[in-house]
């Protein structure tokens, strides 16, 4: 395995000219997060006569990934939300010069003493499920309520009109399926046709959309406090109900359909989101985004399967998500679309 420590130390020396005797230790790759290589490490240095030590996270672009994303989107999301009080790590450096670590990367604060719940665990939060769930949905409400321009999120973001959010996202993920499917996908294709035939009403507000807000993508401490909302690599501007539907998608903690993500009941979750966001959930729009998100999931898992099959990336998590997550989302979508088809023909 490559020794990143001296290379990271050289980079930190470049970014911190006032620091001396920089040492980097404990570089350890974190499992999961197949869209980025993620490493935790400790850096220490002398500055102003004292020894400083800091735990850091380094997120580096992979050779190929679960999802093709731009690392500056994620970094800019952290930069926009960190001053707002939303629990996100402090972003420190974004680097696109390949000379340092061969690929672009960014460095941020490491939130220590926390864990992430597994999206595939039946009960990822145990006794803290209620407390964590209430924070989870309230934080999402605050993300949805944020003014993207005022917090600096919109800079370099592609703008979108309220009546175009759905079409832009659908086009993006349909293209992924077109390019990456290894076998014909009858359920995904039926979903695409349904989504095009039944466009949602325009969103009442263009919001920050996290794009992957779910169980597994935040850290919580031993007292059940959410300490960091992570994995913003698919963030964009759009309809806030896109995030609501993704967070409530049945894939996360699949065996607990009444408690999205293995946290709190769907009704309470949505009420908390409405209170925090100041918006009401339109059931017609929500249904569209629910079906869209199961399709988006399929697109991601199909793409992961292609990466693995072609040898572009042999991370086992890609093979797993292509098998298991495709299996769940195909079933969820087939049942839902079958019911909608019968309703429409009745």
């Amino acid at each position: 395995m490559e020794d990143l420590a001296p290379r990271v130390a050289a980079y930190l020396a470049h970014r911190m000219p006032a620091a001396s005797n920089i040492e980097v230790s404990g570089v350890s790759r974190i499992h999961g997060g197949a869209s980025r290589e993620t490493f935790r490490l400790r850096a220490s240095w002398e500055e102003g006569g004292t020894r400083v030590e800091r735990a850091l996270i380094l997120r580096r672009d992979p050779v190929a990934s679960l999802i093709e994303t731009e690392r500056d989107l994620e970094y800019n999301a952290y930069r926009a939300f960190h001053p707002t009080g939303l629990p996100v790590p402090e972003p420190l450096y974004l680097e696109t010069d390949l000379k340092w670590l061969d690929r672009p990367f960014f460095v941020m604060e490491q939130i220590e003493g926390c864990a992430a719940g597994s999206a595939f665990n039946d009960d990822p939060y145990g006794a803290h499920a209620g407390k964590i769930g209430r924070q989870f949905w309230t934080h999402l409400g605050h993300i949805s309520a944020a003014d993207p321009q005022a917090i600096g999120f919109s800079a370099n973001m592609e703008p979108v009109a309220p009546d175009e959010c759905w079409a832009r996202e659908l086009e993006k993920w349909e293209k992924v399926i077109d390019e990456d499917e290894l076998v014909p996908q009858p359920v995904a294709r039926a979903a695409i046709r349904w989504l095009k035939r039944n466009p949602p009403p325009p969103t009442e507000k263009i919001s920050v959309v996290h794009g992957d807000y779910r169980t597994g993508n935040f850290l919580f401490d031993g007292e059940g406090n959410i300490r960091a909302i992570l994995d913003w690599e698919m963030c964009h501007l759009g309809d806030p109900l896109e995030d609501v539907a993704w967070a409530a998608d049945p894939l996360w903690a699949f065996k607990q359909p009444e408690r999205p993500g293995g946290m709190i009941a769907r009704e309470e979750a949505f009420r908390l989101w409405e209170e925090a966001s100041g918006m009401k959930i339109d059931p017609v729009r929500l249904r569209w985004w629910e079906i869209f998100n199961s399709l988006k999931g399929l697109a991601i898992w199909i793409s992961a399967g292609k990466e693995y099959q072609t040898g572009a990336n042999r991370d086992p998590v890609l093979a797993f998500s292509s098998w298991y997550c495709t299996d769940v989302h195909d079933r969820v979508l087939a049942k839902r679309l079958a019911a909608l088809s019968k309703e429409a023909r009745a």
Binding site: A334, K335, L337, A338, K342
Partner: peptide
């Protein structure tokens, strides 16, 4: 649809 649901 019956076929697709059953096969999934």
């Amino acid at each position: 649809w019956d076929y697709l649901v059953a096969t999934m």
